[in-house]
Structure formats: C-alpha cells, structure tokens
C-alpha cells in the first residue's frame, strides 16, 4: 500500500509539470495583457510595470522563475489585487471553496444514495420513475437557472435565508449555494447507486441473506449497501472535478468569496499569476483526491489489492 502510494505520488510529478506548462504558455500567448486598460498607459509606465513583474524576461526564464517560486510555495504577486500575493488569496479563498464543495458532495451522496437505493428496491415501478425523474432535474435545468430561482423563492420572497454573501460560513449563508451545487451530482450519484444496487440485490449473497429470513433493512444496510457503493466511490474523483467547475457559477451568483470566482475574474483581468495559481492548486488537489479515492476504494473492495 505504501509503495503504491509513493509510486502514484511520483507519477503525479510529470502530470503536474505538463499541467503547469500548458496553463503557463496558454495564458502567455493569449491576446491582451494585464496592463491593458481603457486609458492607455504611458509607455514608460508600462515598461516599468513589465519589469516589476518580470514580464520583460524571455518566456522560458519566466517559466523557470515560476517553477522556482512554486517549489518554495510562492505563487507570486497578484497582478490585479495589488495588495495581496496569490498565495494569500488562495489561502483565503480555498477554505471557503472547500467548505462549500465538501458540503455539496456530502449532501449529494446522502440524497443520491438514498434516492438510488429506493429506486432500485422499487425497480420499474411508479416510485422508481418518480424519484429518478425528480433527481434528474439537477442535470436538466442548468444551475445558473436553478440558483436564482432558489434565491428568489427562499431569500427574496420568503425571506428565510440570505440572498448572497458568505457570512463567514454561517449555515444559513451556505444552505442555498450548497443545494445548487449538489443538485447535478445528486442525479449522477442516484443513477449510479440505482444501477449497482439492482445488480447487488440479484447477487447470491443477498439472496442467501434474504433466505435466512433477515429483515430487509438489515439485508440492505448490512450486506447490500457496501458493495453497491463501489461505483459511487470511483465516481467521487470526477464528482470533485465537477463540483469545482460548478463552483465557478455558484460562487459568482451567490457572491461567495471562493477560488472559482478568482479564476474567472483572473482570466478576464489577465491576472497571470492568479489564474496559474488556481489551476495548479486545483490540479494538485484533483491528483491527491483521486489517490485518496483509490486507496479508499481498495479498503472497501477486498478484491482490489495494491
């Protein structure tokens, strides 16, 4: 297990390098620069700015400088938010995105697995069709429609919940964005759970358990659920990536101070270092998370051994 983990980590290094290089050069060849503003800068000032951010160096040298900074955990200064470094911005934005995304995945798992299991137990009945249809709204209505609808209903009309902002992560601020972010994942997870649960329920050991007269509850919770969750576990990696992408929309609509919003603003402002920082940071995160999921999977599934 340890050897496997180490080799996976080592294998991640080229992946990361490719990721960094791709993002770095893509941003640099993009038209428009961080110092383009409607009031054109005097050339001297622009030259000074370029020098201050080392944009006057050859590209490969800038790349080396950037990699060197990364090794020291330094993402560089933000071009746009001049009072902060990118490391600081990620440091304040990530905990917010993590809470938001983490809660959304947990919620999606909870609802998705429940709905999927119910549907599987009542396969091809009206209950099955109904719960699956409802859970599928998340992938039928774009979240940029769902989110304002939720705000309109619960914040503006009913006045139960705040319409936006983060409030330091208070539950009432989190509720709506978490739901909006979780909905599409509910659809995928419930579909996966339903499929694998149907399969598991037909397997011999479940039949045996039933034949022994164990109560249905026990059969499902004790015997069927764990193997049925395996495909759901392997979906967690992609789900994380999806939630991260989704947060770009959700954070913007709810005014949540997370990384997704930085990314879009950064790309629009040509804040090279901030965009790079977010991409690299999330790249590392996805790689690590996939590893954790695989290890967890091995723990769940006795057939897999590393």
């Amino acid at each position: 297990m340890l050897r496997y983990t180490l080799s996976r980590l080592l294998g991640a290094i080229p992946t990361l390098l490719i990721l960094i290089a791709l993002a770095f050069f893509m941003i640099r060849v993009a038209p428009g620069g961080p110092f383009d503003t409607e009031r054109a800068l005097p050339p001297e000032i622009e030259a000074n700015l370029r020098a201050a951010y080392h944009l006057d160096e050859p590209l490969y040298q800038q790349f080396a400088r950037y990699l060197g900074g990364l090794l020291r955990g330094d993402f560089g200064p933000s071009f746009q938010y001049k009072d902060f470094t990118v490391t600081e911005l990620i440091g304040t934005g990530f905990p917010v995105s993590l809470r938001l995304g983490g809660s959304a995945i947990l919620l999606a798992l909870l609802i998705g697995v429940t709905v999927g299991t119910i549907a599987a137990l009542r396969q091809n009945t009206r209950t099955d069709y109904t719960v699956m249809a409802v859970s599928m709204t998340g992938i039928s209505i774009p979240n940029f429609v769902m989110a304002p609808l939720l705000i309109l209903l619960f914040a503006v009309t009913l006045g139960w919940l705040p319409a936006g902002g983060w409030g330091g992560g208070a539950w009432n601020h989190m509720l709506l964005p978490v739901i909006a972010l979780a909905l599409p994942q509910v659809a995928y997870i419930s579909r996966l759970t339903r499929g694998s649960m149907i399969e598991v329920l037909r397997s011999n050991f479940v039949r045996t358990a039933r034949a022994q007269g164990l109560p249905e509850r026990t059969v499902i919770l004790r015997y069927a659920l764990k193997p049925a969750l395996l495909p759901v576990m392997s979906y967690l990696g992609p789900a994380t990536a999806a939630v991260i992408t989704g947060s770009v929309v959700i954070e913007q609509i709810f005014g949540v101070p997370g990384l997704g919003r930085y990314f879009v603003q950064g790309a629009l402002n040509r804040d090279y270092t901030l965009v790079m920082g977010v991409v690299v940071f999330y790249g590392v995160l996805i790689i690590l998370f996939n590893l954790v999921v695989d290890l967890f999977y091995a723990w769940l599934d006795p057939k897999v051994k590393y």
Binding site: A163, G164, Q265
Partner: peptide
C-alpha cells in the same frame, strides 16, 4: 462595502435587505 460583480445578484441582495 460588498464587491458584487453580478448586478442581478446585487439587486437580489438589496431586495433581501442585505
């Protein structure tokens, strides 16, 4: 001061008395 780029969001928050 609240930074809110999205004007629809801003109006919603205004209407929710935020």
């Amino acid at each position: 001061y609240y930074p809110i780029e999205n004007q629809s969001t801003e109006l919603q928050r205004y209407r929710a008395n935020e």
